[in-house]
Simulated scan of single mutants.
Amino acid sequence: MQKLSTTMIGLLKKILFYLVLILIWELIYKIGVETLEIWKPYTFPSPVSVFETLIDLISDNTLGIAIVASIKRIFIGYSISVCLGIIVGLIMTKFKYLDENLSPLILGMQTLPSICWLPFAILWYGLNESAIIFVIAIGSTFAVSIAILSGIKNVNPLYIRAARTLGARGMKIYWNVITPAALPGVISGLKQGWSFAWRALMAGEMLTATKGLGQVLMVGRDLADISQVMAVMVVIIILGLTVDKLIFGRIEENVRRRWGLDRA
């Protein structure tokens, strides 16, 4: 019962915090647009107009169709990147020569903006679904592989020596010692890969005429409808936070509980 009350209080504090942010936003709009006329209404929207636009997008099902299309693409592309990233990361940890020579290249590829891969995707696949999925996958694969490599390399050697002293060999060391110890770093890398995947998705959808949140964002830009642009940005943030809370947050919580790192 006490835990439930604490949770409710924490939730109310968060709601209050965001309400204050919205009020500050509205205050800035009133002063900057209506009173001092520093900005034009079409360059700085009010939270009320953004909310109304959001309701309109939901009512005509534009937002629903866009969300379903975008979520489908990002989960396919991100799943591919996770599989490829894990394979590449494990291969580099196994072979020192590849680690020494391939790691700098992968690190450089990670810093390359995802939009740079779009010309390749269009030339190879055309303006279709496959091109966007390719950009998503290539945009987050390197972050995942680096996370796997760093997570395994940063495992305390004392754990491995202790396991060998107790008789563990081969895959038992990987499965029972290295993998659990590397999980925190790997999860952080997976979260980073997810953020890269979102950026790649938006880049692909904004530059290709296809259904999705990026396309709705571009329509708002073409119509000079800043409220629609802001509404889509809010939806993207909400989706990102939801996935982080429901998937990555739960995984991190399970890892902390397993390692006895839960706060009292």
Rank of each mutant, 00 (worst) to 15 (best):
I146R: 00
L127E: 14
G126V: 02
I173Q: 08
C83F: 14
M109I: 09
M92C: 05
A203M: 09
P119H: 09
T93W: 12
G204C: 07
A181R: 08
N128G: 11
I80W: 07
G189R: 06
W175C: 15
I152V: 10
L190S: 05
G185F: 02
A182Y: 08
I173M: 07
M92S: 01
V82Q: 03
W175K: 15
T141S: 02
P157G: 04
L207N: 10
N101D: 14
A163V: 04
R164K: 14
S188E: 14
P180L: 04
L166F: 12
F142Y: 09
L207D: 11
L112T: 01
S81F: 03
G85A: 01
S79Q: 08
A168P: 13
V88N: 09
V144G: 02
A121G: 07
V177P: 02
T208P: 10
M109P: 05
K153H: 07
L127P: 14
A181K: 10
L98H: 04
Y97Q: 15
V155T: 07
R164T: 14
I146N: 00
G126L: 07
V177I: 09
A147D: 00
R164Y: 13
V135K: 05
K94L: 12
N128Y: 10
V82K: 09
A147K: 01
S81G: 02
T210D: 11
Q110L: 00
N156L: 06
S150Y: 10
L149P: 04
Q110I: 00
L213A: 04
G151A: 02
P184I: 10
K172H: 15
A168T: 12
I148N: 06
L127N: 14
L84P: 06
L102I: 00
P104L: 00
A209E: 15
I187G: 07
L207T: 09
G126Q: 07
V186G: 12
W124Y: 13
G139H: 02
S130Y: 14
I115K: 08
C83S: 15
